[in-house]
């Protein structure tokens, strides 16, 4: 992520070479409005992925929601992915007017996954965050009620994680 600042000009050149111009334009707009943050933007199969630091999450999501170039008013999806060395929170945002879609990715610690709750920006992320807490044990700071959603109260462990013994698990 740190190399992004220095290779910005190079990545822009690459972009203009092998990407279709609409995507390239959207990426350059994003680089403009998010220029003060430590991010790296890449594109994969027509999708724009933005890797961010988790401290900047709320600021960047607010900008993406309110900026007239992006207008991501619809919170599509929040997925937690359990990689070997880290958790990743993946936010999919959609604009109902411009029809853009952006993917925001942020890495979380493996031992103590913690990220700010964006319930103040979209009410629609409420249950997604509860589910993330339920199945993966990710703590969403600022969420008013992280009680179990899909599992029952007494359930122990985080069944979404890779180390949960899924096939050996016996309930009765």
């Amino acid at each position: 992520m740190a190399e992004e600042e220095t290779t910005e000009s190079i990545s822009e050149e690459e972009v203009s070479e092998d990407l279709d111009p609409i995507l390239a334009e959207r990426i350059s707009i994003l680089e403009n409005i998010l220029s003060t943050y430590d991010i790296s933007i890449s594109s994969f199969l027509g999708e724009i992925n933005i890797h961010i630091q988790k401290i900047d999450l709320l600021d960047i999501l607010t900008i993406l929601k309110n900026s007239p170039e992006t207008l991501c008013n619809l919170f599509l999806c929040l997925s937690i992915v359990d990689y070997e060395d880290r958790f990743e929170a993946v936010y999919h945002l959609q604009s109902t007017t411009l029809n853009h879609r952006y993917v925001i990715k942020s890495s979380l610690d493996k031992d103590k996954p913690l990220i700010s709750s964006c319930i103040g920006i979209w009410k629609g992320c409420d249950w997604y965050e509860r589910e993330g807490h339920d199945l993966f044990g990710v703590v969403f700071e600022g969420h008013p009620n992280l009680s179990p959603l899909l599992l029952y109260e007494e359930f122990e462990g985080y069944p979404g994680r890779k180390d949960f013994p899924f096939n050996d698990y016996k309930e009765w």
Partner: peptide
């Protein structure tokens, strides 16, 4: 909710 939770997402990983 959760009465019908079958873990489809986790099942798919296998």
């Amino acid at each position: 909710i959760g009465y019908l939770h079958r873990g489809s997402e986790k099942l798919s990983e296998g």
